[in-house]
């Protein structure tokens, strides 16, 4: 099952490569790649956050087995998203990059989201999990913050054009997923499945 999910999760990348080879990445390929990888990073973030509610509802720990891989795929697409921006928008000029990060709130939020994903990716191994013990779970709660900064990044990007339909859907999904973490709602979810 894990191997199937792994290959499914690579499909968005395969698609970009295929479209690139067939010269089909639209008139603005860089924008296309940046937006596509940003969207997929967000989709995998949602999927990652969906595993715990699914476990509670289904009363099955099976879901948790996929959580790490989904989270790492979110990081993977975020890396491409960030890397393309750093390379083709900022030309690897770190000074210019930081100026942009400080000056533009939507970039600030994207940058924070990316930076916060790094420690989570680095400590995703079993070894780190054992080593960190209880602190591991605390550290990985940063994902809730990332959900907020990532959606703000997307929201503010779209706000100028008032084009908020798609981002509202993602915001609603993430809000719902985060609500599942509220102890009271958590209890209801797991109770329902126990009876």
């Amino acid at each position: 099952m894990k191997i199937i999910i792994f290959f499914l999760a690579l499909l968005p990348l395969d698609r970009l490569i295929w479209l690139g080879l067939t010269d089909d990445l639209s008139a603005n390929p860089i924008e296309f790649i940046t937006r596509s990888t940003g969207t997929w990073a967000l989709v995998f973030l949602c999927l990652t956050l969906a595993m715990t509610p699914l476990r509670l509802i289904g009363n099955s720990v099976a879901w948790i087995r996929y959580r790490r891989m989904l989270g790492l795929f979110s990081f993977f697409y975020a890396c491409i998203h960030f890397g393309i921006w750093l390379w083709l928008d900022q030309d690897f000029d770190l000074g210019a990059m930081f100026k942009d990060v400080v000056k533009r709130p939507f970039i600030t939020m994207g940058f924070i989201s990316f930076v916060l994903l790094i420690p989570l990716a680095l400590t995703s191994t079993h070894w780190a999990q054992k080593k960190l013990g209880r602190r591991w779970a605390q550290l990985h709660r940063i994902i809730y913050l990332i959900a907020c900064t990532a959606i703000l990044h997307y929201w503010w990007h779209k706000a100028g054009k008032n084009d908020l339909d798609t981002v509202s859907i993602y915001a609603a999904i993430l809000t719902l997923l985060l609500c599942c973490r509220i102890p009271y709602i958590r209890k209801i979810l797991s109770k329902r499945s126990n009876t």
Binding site: G20, L25, A27, N28, P29, I30, E31, L88, D89, D91, D100, K103, R104, F106, I107, W156, H157, G160
Partner: peptide, 24 residues
């Protein structure tokens, strides 16, 4: 004069003959 959300110092030429990874 930057746009509040991005710089206007450079632009990407659509269909740049230098390829999709051409610099702005």
């Amino acid at each position: 004069v930057d746009h509040p959300r991005w710089s206007q110092a450079t632009e990407r030429r659509i269909g740049d003959s230098k390829g999709i990874f051409a610099p702005k």
